[in-house]
Simulated assay, not measured.
Amino acid sequence: MALYEWNASTAGLLGTALGHSEIVLRNAIDTALTARHQRLHRAGHWLDDPHRELDQRARDDIETARARLQRAGAPALPGKLIAELTFGFWRFLLARRYTTTLWSGIRPGFPHMPGRDRRVIEAPVARLHLLRNRIAHHEPLLAEPLPDRYDDLLTLVGYVDPALRTWLEAITDIPHQLARRP
Rank of each mutant, 00 (worst) to 15 (best):
G115A: 09
T31N: 12
L153C: 13
Y98L: 08
L156Y: 05
L69K: 09
A170D: 12
R149N: 13
L81M: 00
A126E: 12
L156K: 08
G88A: 06
L154A: 00
T10M: 13
D173F: 07
H45A: 09
L81H: 04
R118Q: 14
L168F: 02
R96W: 08
A35Y: 01
T34V: 04
L33C: 01
G109D: 09
L33I: 04
L142R: 12
P78I: 03
Q38K: 13
G79S: 01
L93H: 07
H45P: 05
R97A: 08
E22K: 03
H41Q: 13
G15I: 02
P50H: 04
L153P: 03
I171D: 00
T16K: 05
A163W: 06
D151T: 15
P124T: 10
N27M: 03
G115C: 10
V24D: 11
P78A: 02
R42Y: 09
R36M: 14
R119T: 14
H138A: 11
H137W: 06
P182V: 04
P147T: 03
G109C: 04
T86G: 06
Y4L: 14
E84P: 01
H137T: 10
W6N: 09
L18F: 06
L18N: 07
I62D: 08
L69H: 07
T99E: 15
H176T: 14
H51K: 14
A58Y: 06
L77G: 02
R181W: 01
T64A: 14
P182A: 02
Y98M: 06
R66Y: 09
T100Q: 13
T155S: 13
A65R: 05
D117I: 03
A17H: 11
W103T: 07
I174L: 10
G15T: 05
R91S: 12
W103K: 05
P75L: 05
L130D: 13
D117P: 05
P111I: 08
L33H: 03
N27T: 10
L131Q: 00
I106T: 10
Q38A: 10
L178M: 09
R116E: 15
W103I: 06
A11T: 07
A67N: 12
L102K: 01
D55E: 11
E84C: 13
A95V: 04
E53F: 00
P147Y: 03
Y4H: 08
P50W: 04
G44T: 09
E84W: 00
T99R: 15
I174N: 00
R57E: 12
Q70Y: 06
I121E: 11
W6H: 14
G12H: 10
R97T: 12
F92Y: 14
P162I: 08
A32M: 08
R180A: 15
R116P: 01
A143Q: 11
T16D: 08
S9P: 04
A32L: 02
T99D: 15
V125Q: 04
I82K: 06
T31Q: 14
L13Y: 07
H176W: 07
E144S: 06
H137I: 12
P114K: 11
Q56M: 04
H51C: 11
P145Q: 09
V120R: 15
P114N: 10
H37Y: 09
I135D: 02
L142S: 14
R149A: 02
L141P: 08
I121W: 01
P147E: 10
G88P: 05
L13W: 05
W90H: 06
P175N: 03
E139W: 01
A179N: 12
D151C: 03
E144P: 05
N27F: 00
R26L: 01
E122I: 02
